[in-house]
Design a protein around this nucleic acid. Structure first.
Lengths: 232, 232
DNA sequence: GAAAAATCGTGTCATATTTCACATAGTAGG
DNA sequence: CCTACTATGTGAAATATGACACGATTTTTC
């Protein structure tokens, strides 16, 4: 039967579960103890029905007339999402974007720890490693060793387009299984490796298309079927 | 009738069209003159059928037995996507992420021009404005004026979570219609404004979930239905 | 303790998106 | 000019995703 342990959670549902976790965190900080699907929906930007459907998928049961116990639900979400403890993440590319990511304070709060960065330019790693509290930047040659040491599975790619594929090959070789790719190229990866692309240009082009009401479609109000806010 | 001019192109199709444009650009640089749906599909990471369906949506007709003429198709894509000329984009938040974005060389190549940046910290704008060729950084108070001057419709939000909603309100007030949001908050916007969210933590959590094969699902191969590479 | 209100869980329906399959049209070669 | 081959365009089936509605269960109130 449809037990919650015997099948993967759909693609987009995982996203929403993360959203819920964040919303719950905020609610918890405000002193709430239970939450209704209605409230959680509002806080996450989705519909109440969707919240209930998603939450039943992970097998957590709320109580009619009362709602969901926040603490328990949050714990359950962390279990399912695997964010119970800090997960190590490594970064390749210590250029401007890479350094911006290193300085991002949200990693730990969200259950991840940026444990190491890599670059091929000696100026980058000699300049930044060793600073107190900051992320150490190693030469790319040390990749395998450091990945193994931290047992990292996730990697962020923030290198120029030219070297992206080469870097990814090395990441996979080193044992990385999931890649967050900021470079604007189509990465070739074997079965079993997951890639999420964040492509500035694609985002902007899409935004541009959907905000341009002249020249494309006569009816602006035709967009009623599409939500203004997108969460993938 | 299903004419290509009388209806909007679906959400995800716009994304793929952008992908095609990039792939075509590369093919063109290699000296190719025509391309088959098969080849274009391979270069873009989608299926050939999908390519044909998408391309018929914009009303461009390929030639059986030969394929699509690259130059002509690329021009048509730029028309449809509205990337025929440079579109102005403004940025709010000149912190680390903001400065990384300002230094991103890809904007112009992809049809966008980062015309101005804003910050509320005098240190940021006094330090960076006026440099030759770089993006000027203005105080946030000048937002309306500068947005109007450049006739910008698109804005990028790279400010801390606390100030994101406030910034977005000002953007909308100033005439911005599409927002690329890097802050991890749910933005409230009126009908007609499009928001695309880029949320590091959500991306990582999803990656983590889908690369974690223990503890969640017995069958790893169960993921046959999901593509390893994701383009939204 | 009984009735009313609140809220969950889920079957069913509607919509959007992708895949399949194939008839159709154009090209190349002799 | 005719045949063989290639590649498109598109209707239809399959899949995924989200919306709706309603019965069931618990709390709250009197």
């Amino acid at each position: 039967m449809k037990n919650h342990t015997d099948q993967r959670i759909p693609y987009r549902t995982v996203y929403r579960l993360s959203l819920y976790a964040r919303a719950l965190q905020r609610l918890l900080e405000r002193g709430a103890e239970t939450v209704s699907s209605q409230t959680l929906a509002l806080a996450s930007g989705v519909k109440a029905d969707q919240v209930r459907k998603d939450l039943t998928q992970i097998g957590h049961f709320g109580r009619p007339g009362l709602g969901y116990p926040i603490t328990s639900l949050l714990g359950h979400l962390h279990d399912v999402l695997g964010t119970t403890r800090l997960r190590p993440v490594i970064l390749v590319g210590a250029g401007r974007l890479g350094r911006a990511l290193m300085a991002y304070p949200g990693f730990n709060k969200e259950g991840f720890e940026l444990v190491a960065a890599f670059d091929c330019d000696p100026k980058q790693y000699s300049a930044h490693s060793g600073k107190n509290g900051s992320v150490p930047v190693y030469p790319i040659q040390n990749l395998s060793k450091v990945v193994a040491r931290h047992n990292a599975r996730l990697g962020i790619v923030a290198v120029p387009a030219e070297s992206a594929q080469s870097v990814v090959n090395q990441l996979i070789e080193a044992g990385i299984r999931g890649i967050l790719n900021f470079s604007p190229v189509l990465l070739q990866v074997p079965e079993g490796i997951t890639v999420n692309n964040v492509n500035l240009a694609l985002e902007l082009e899409q935004l541009h298309y959907f905000t341009e009401d002249s020249a494309h479609s006569a009816k602006t109000s035709h967009a009623k079927s599409r939500k203004a806010i997108k969460h993938r």
